[in-house]
Each structure stands twice: as C-alpha cells, then as structure tokens.
Design a protein around this nucleic acid. Structure first.
Length: 206
DNA sequence: TCCGGCGAAGTGTTACATCA
DNA sequence: GTGATGTAACACTTCGCCGG
C-alpha cells in the first residue's frame, strides 16, 4: 500500500494542492473574521525525548547526505527513509519531515524561477510591441505621403485629359504616354476581378 | 537586545488502500 | 458494496535558533 500511495501521480498532487488552496481561501474564515490560530502543544518532544526544544538544526553532514538523496529522488519510500534514518542517526519521522520541507522549498524555488522567466518574457514582449507600434506609425506616415502623391498626380491627369483627350484609351491610360509607356496601360486592365481601382490598394495596408 | 529569515516540526485535510 | 481505519502527501502554521 505504501508504494501505491507514494506513486500518486502529478494530477492527484495538483488536485490536492488545488483543493487545499480552496479550503484555505474559501472554507477557512478570511478577512473580517479572524481565523483562530492553531495552538501547538508545548514541548511534546521533551516528553518522549525525540524532539526536545533543544534538538534543532541537523548537522552539515546530515544535511549533505539528505541533499544527496533528495537529488536522486524527491520522494522518499519508507524503506529508504528507514535506511537513511539509521545512517544519519535520526528518527525516520525527522527524515520524512526533512523531505517534506525540502520539497516545499524546492517547489517555492521553482515557482520563483518560473515567475522570473515569465516576467522577463513579458518585458521582452512589451519592448517588441513598442517597436512594432513605432514601425506601424512610420509606415502609416509613408502611406499618407504616397496617397498625397497619387492624389497630386490624379489631379494633374484630370487637368490634362479634360483639355485634350477624346478616346477611351487615352482617358483610361492617362499619363503613361507622357513617359513613353503607352503599352503598359494594358496591365491595368487585365480583368474585372483582378482590377483594383484607384486608391483602394492603399487601403489594404491601413 | 531586537528582529527577520530560515528550518524543523505541528496541524488539518485529502486521496487511496485495506479490512471487517 | 460500504464504512472505519491507517498512511502518506501537501499547504499552511508555529516556534526556536541564529546572524545582522
């Protein structure tokens, strides 16, 4: 049974964590209703000689060995716990508690690292967003300039056509002739569907 | 001396296994 | 099938030690 329980999968752990969190944030009285503080039994260890008030801080060697074991495997099977406890001259309960606390510290550290990573990524994204927004502004300015130029040329063409042009072709391919590009006029009349009229193309980019 | 941080240990809850 | 019981895990808390 022990090993089965030890093999709780991550989903179960997360589920329990969530439930526990829910319990403490929702079931336990929160603000305005001060929750009763749990009282610890005084000097329980002093009576059984295992965890007296003076018995604190594991030695450096003990911690080293515990750390080595934790490095290999964060979970502690009862067999390994007993073995470790006898090697360290500690109560198996102490070894279990040490692993419990070590897992909590490890998790906190991981959360901090994850937070730092996400924060850095967020800041990078903000910078990139600013850069892109600035680029969009520049492009809009360019577009405005282009539209003005087209408008200027259109007006110029209208002036010319109203004075001298009478054929359809010359009206629809107005100014190309001025630059010796008469043949290119056909390009603008490929098909009804492909034709983009006037300044519509520019709206595609706004 | 005081105070905050850290670590060992206590408490309450849940999930799961076992057994009567 | 079901309720009681035991165990291990977790989050949260308390408490003692230690260094600044």
């Amino acid at each position: 049974m022990t090993t089965t329980i030890m093999n709780h999968n991550k989903v179960d752990q997360d589920h329990m964590a969530l439930l526990s969190q829910l319990y403490y944030t929702q079931m336990v009285p929160q603000q305005g209703e001060p929750k009763p503080r749990r009282r610890r039994k005084k000097n329980k260890g002093a009576e059984n000689g295992v965890t007296g008030a003076k018995k604190r801080k594991l030695s450096a060697d003990q911690v080293n060995l515990l750390e080595m074991n934790f490095g290999n495997e964060h979970k502690l099977e009862s067999e390994r716990k007993d073995k470790l406890a006898s090697e360290l001259g500690l109560d198996p309960r102490q070894v279990a508690v040490w692993f419990q606390n070590r897992r909590a510290r490890w998790k906190n550290k991981k959360l901090e690292e994850e937070y730092t990573k996400l924060k850095t990524a967020h800041e990078t994204n903000i910078i990139e967003k600013c850069r892109l927004e600035s680029e969009v502004l520049k492009l809009k300015e360019k577009l405005l300039e282009a539209e003005k130029e087209i408008q200027r040329l259109t007006e110029k063409i209208d002036g010319v056509s109203s004075n001298s042009c009478s054929s359809t072709l010359s009206m629809n391919t107005p100014f190309l002739g001025e630059f010796g590009m008469e043949g290119i006029g056909d390009i603008f009349y490929m098909s009804e569907t492909n034709y983009i009229h006037g300044m519509e193309w520019s709206n595609l980019y706004v």
